[in-house]
Design a protein around this nucleic acid. Structure first.
Lengths: 64, 64
DNA sequence: TCCTTATGTAAATAAAACTTTACTTTTAGT
DNA sequence: ACTAAAAGTAAAGTTTTATTTACATAAGGA
């Protein structure tokens, strides 16, 4: 499961801490997701996708 | 987090056990998700949505 | 260089997702 | 009514996601 969060953050000029706050998780959680350490929960994926006005499929891709 | 899995299953004539097998989880997991006991992981949500040829947003909705 | 902000990482813990086993209830067919 | 299949449920245990604290590194500006 890959994602484009880092790019979306850059486009919106948000730090990991900014994004973490907006979706109500810890900064380390955002970092871990970006680094591919684990996948977000479905509710968290929804929060992130709504924040960036993208569909979940546009942000996350199941690398088969 | 609500979902329309029960309806989609009916449309595709699949039992909970059938669906569980297709997405490689236990029947109880499908049951629990349908009953709203917990949300699927993001990878599982992807598997289900691809099986039914729907977007994740079409199947799952964050009830506020 | 010094200081600050952002990012990366790690260990311990907590919480949520999922499994396994097993039993009960519902539903539908004959 | 009887039977079989499907659905519901529950407890105990494992795995994965997320938190907290804490420290280390990278990058840039003053």
């Amino acid at each position: 499961m890959k994602n484009t969060i880092k790019v979306l953050r850059a486009e919106h000029d948000l730090t990991q801490a900014d994004l973490a706050e907006k979706v109500a998780v810890s900064r380390q959680t955002i970092n871990a997701i970006e680094k591919g350490k684990f996948d977000p929960s479905l509710p968290l994926a929804f929060k992130i996708s709504r924040l960036f006005n993208k569909s979940i499929e546009e942000i996350f891709t199941a690398e088969e």
